[in-house]
Design a protein around this nucleic acid. Structure first.
Lengths: 357, 357
DNA sequence: CTGAAAGCGCTAACAG
DNA sequence: CTGTTAGCGCTTTCAG
């Protein structure tokens, strides 16, 4: 009772060798039924629980897949409303878990935060057979090292061109296409002429791709805009979104007739800020987001946005990892791009309705 | 490049002993800076990733907490709408992950399915320091064995009275109170006189508690109802909910003026079935659910329900586990009951609005 | 501050 | 079908 029982204890108690105890758990059919029962009984009496660690060590595999994502807890998102606070990393978790389950794997999830030589990824990497990482969650260099040792799939954030991460499998969404289509809608169907794009200071491939889509649509429609986002925020949170909106309202010159945000969180923050200023959305200015988080449809006016297939992304990531692990696939790094869909809601002037996808 | 590098490789390459390599990762300060750098450099060059398994084995702890939940994928919930498909186990995952992160733990999640001596829990149990289980996910007996070896907290489903699981920590929600209050609302504010309760065949402590609350409220209001649920379904899915509604509509005698379901999933199914039959909700009959899943507010009419604080439940579970693990708390089994809140929406006749909680 | 040595609990050939 | 025998890669005293 004081120490945890091991195979030795079970073996002794049931009068067999430790190898047999092991077999009872790994290949039950290779042990005579009566023996098996005896072992199982002893195990039960002792309260024996096989050590996953010892197993993993001896067999060099864990039956666990991992997921690392950024510690992106937008403080303002801490509503008492659980649904609204659901971020998209939660959707990815769902997707991965479902798929992992189908393949008989469990899922280890961890958000980054700490420092030291003992970083998060390392911790996860050391306990799983393979894992997925949300882009920019961990230093590239570290990923590079780890990915030499076990399958890693990168989620979002296009593969770095000439970079060392080129041998990673990679799944992204059609950021550019989505933002282009959304912008075109604004320009063509709502007569927008002075759209302002709100991006991020830090270079994020996803955000840059979205911005390119925005520029594309503007150019195609003959709408003149700067080659740079109107504002670049530090973090894409609600607070920063509100700040950006305020900034754009107070900036000299004509106020933009559309606030095109690089993500939903910021757009939601802007919605509040504009309301505070007595501006009506979409009458006085249109607001759009990107991601399609649950909150986007709960706010008023409901947010027009581009929905990313997060759950699907998680599933694809898992499938890819499983393929790699099973050795069924050893080809060149895969780079998959998932389609997105524009969700037209009230914040751009479209009525709420079944227009959604 | 062919095999994974180990401490030995790193030690050799950096001219130190394996003990020092280990120290660099576990207690960096106990190693001279220059030595540390040398080791780290070698590790980087080699692509060294510490084995979580070996670590766990040697140190008898993993830094991982676990969560087991039922493979409860309601097929009908498989909308192409990710948000709507979000079940409450997902909320618990969120809560646990957040809390685990705060305490420096990662989270291992796994849904049940398989069989054999090698069950799910065992797998999880063997790889974590402690874990939570959604009630009735795993055989009581198995839990009993495992819980002798490491902290386990049971989620929902009240502790078994005289049963062997009495030494488990336990967190549940106020099922009875919630259902009582909701029912009272129906009776007192909406003049319901012939409410029908839809429960489950299999004995579930939670569902039974809810039913008791229902009976209580009826008795208090002087409304006569049978001492048994009007219908008991096999699984609490949308399909079964629809079937139950159909059954109650076709059953001889007066149609119920309120369908009180034991969970949201069923209620949603019923909503569709009633609509199909040309019955208006809430005018012709009132419908209520239980849980407060995201879908409940997306359906039309929006579902009046009892919201369970799922995220909070996950957090409490984690906190409890961490306390137990840190040895800070070794007292008697804790049994915590979390309050719920009635969410009045359109399906009971209350207008949609800020009446929500 | 660093090294040597002894396991942690299990799996995996290899023999019987 | 079952037992023997080596490790798997790391942590951890205990000495230096």
């Amino acid at each position: 009772m004081t120490v945890t029982p091991t195979v030795y204890d079970v073996a002794e108690r049931s009068g067999v060798s430790i190898a047999t105890v092991s077999r009872v758990y790994r290949t039950p059919d290779s042990v005579r039924a009566s023996t098996r029962e005896r072992v199982l009984a002893a195990a039960r009496e002792l309260g024996y629980v096989p050590s996953g660690n010892a197993r993993g060590l001896a067999s060099r595999s864990t039956g666990v897949l991992g997921l690392c994502f950024p510690d992106y807890a937008d403080p303002a998102a801490d509503t008492d409303d659980d649904d609204a606070a659901m971020l998209y990393s939660d959707q990815i978790i769902r997707g991965m878990e479902r798929a992992a389950r189908r393949h008989g794997y469990a899922l280890l999830i961890a958000a980054s935060l700490q420092g030291g030589p003992e970083s998060l990824v390392a911790k996860v990497a050391g306990r799983v057979d393979g894992f997925a990482v949300l882009a920019r969650t961990v230093p590239t260099e570290e990923l590079e090292v780890i990915s030499r040792r076990r399958p890693v799939v990168m989620l979002a954030g296009p593969r770095e061109g000439t970079d060392s991460l080129d041998h990673l499998d990679h799944i992204e969404v059609a950021n550019e296409d989505g933002q282009r289509e959304l912008t075109r809608h604004l320009l063509a169907d709502h007569g927008i002429r002075r759209p302002a794009y709100i991006g991020m200071i830090e270079e994020s491939p996803d955000v840059e791709a979205r911005f390119r889509g925005f520029l594309d649509a503007c150019r195609d429609a003959g709408v003149e805009v700067a080659g740079e986002p109107a504002v670049r925020v530090g973090m894409m949170t609600q607070a920063e979104g509100a700040r950006a909106a305020a900034l754009l309202c107070e900036r000299p010159g004509e106020r933009p007739d559309a606030f095109v945000f690089a993500n939903d969180q910021m757009a939601v923050g802007a919605l509040r800020e504009l309301e505070r200023r007595g501006l009506r959305v979409p009458e006085d200015a249109v607001v759009t987001g990107f991601d399609g988080i649950p909150l986007s449809r709960l706010v008023r006016p409901a947010l027009t946005t581009v929905r990313q297939p997060m759950v699907r992304m998680g599933e694809e990531a898992t499938d890819l990892l499983v393929q790699r692990l099973s050795g069924r696939y050893t080809g060149a790094p895969v780079s998959r791009m998932l389609p997105v869909s524009v969700v037209r809601r009230a914040s751009c002037g479209c009525a709420e309705g079944r227009t959604q996808s």
